[in-house]
Amino acid sequence: MDEETLERVRAVVTAIPPGQTLSYGEVADLAGLRSARLVGKILAEDGHDLPWHRVLRADGTAAPHIAHEQAARLRAEGVLMVDGRLPREHRRR
C-alpha cells in the first residue's frame, strides 16, 4: 500500500471529533478510496496511535475482537452503544 493512501486514511480518522463516529465506508469515501476493508486493514496495521475506536462497521457494530475496548473508549466520550450497536439515530447513513 502506498504512503499517500495510508496518510489520507490517517488524516480522516484523526479528524473525527471526540464523541462522533464514522463507518469504515465513510472513512474510505472521505479518503478517496473504494474499499472500506482497506480502511480496516490500515487501522489494524498502522492505527494504534489514532482514535480508531471512532470507526465502526456500517451497521453500527464493532468488530468482535475489539468490541469491548471500543465500546469503553466510546462510552468515555459520551457515545453509548445499545446491545453492542450504535443506535441508528446516531449513525450518519
Rank of each mutant, 00 (worst) to 15 (best):
M1A: 14
E3K: 09
E4Q: 15
T5I: 15
E7N: 13
E7H: 08
R8V: 04
R8Q: 09
A11L: 00
A11I: 10
V12S: 04
V12C: 08
P17N: 06
Q20K: 15
L22M: 07
L22I: 01
S23D: 02
Y24S: 05
G25C: 03
G25K: 00
L30H: 04
G32N: 04
L33R: 01
R34S: 10
R34L: 03
S35I: 01
S35V: 02
S35A: 06
A36E: 02
R37A: 12
R37Q: 07
L38S: 14
L38A: 10
L38E: 13
V39A: 00
G40L: 02
G40R: 04
G40H: 02
K41D: 04
L43I: 06
L43T: 04
L43C: 07
A44F: 12
A44I: 05
E45C: 12
D46N: 15
G47K: 06
G47I: 13
P51S: 12
W52S: 10
H53V: 14
R54S: 04
R54G: 14
L56C: 10
A58H: 07
D59K: 05
D59N: 10
T61E: 00
T61Y: 03
T61K: 01
T61R: 08
A63I: 07
A63Q: 08
A63G: 10
P64S: 05
H65K: 11
H65R: 09
H65I: 13
A67V: 03
A67Q: 05
H68W: 12
H68G: 11
H68E: 15
E69I: 15
E69Y: 02
Q70M: 08
A72L: 14
L74S: 06
R75K: 14
G78I: 08
G78F: 07
V79M: 11
L80R: 12
M81K: 05
M81T: 15
D83Q: 08
G84R: 00
R85E: 08
R85C: 10
L86R: 10
P87W: 01
P87T: 10
P87L: 01
R88T: 09
R88M: 13
E89I: 15
E89M: 12
H90K: 14
H90T: 11
R92W: 06
R93N: 15
R93T: 14
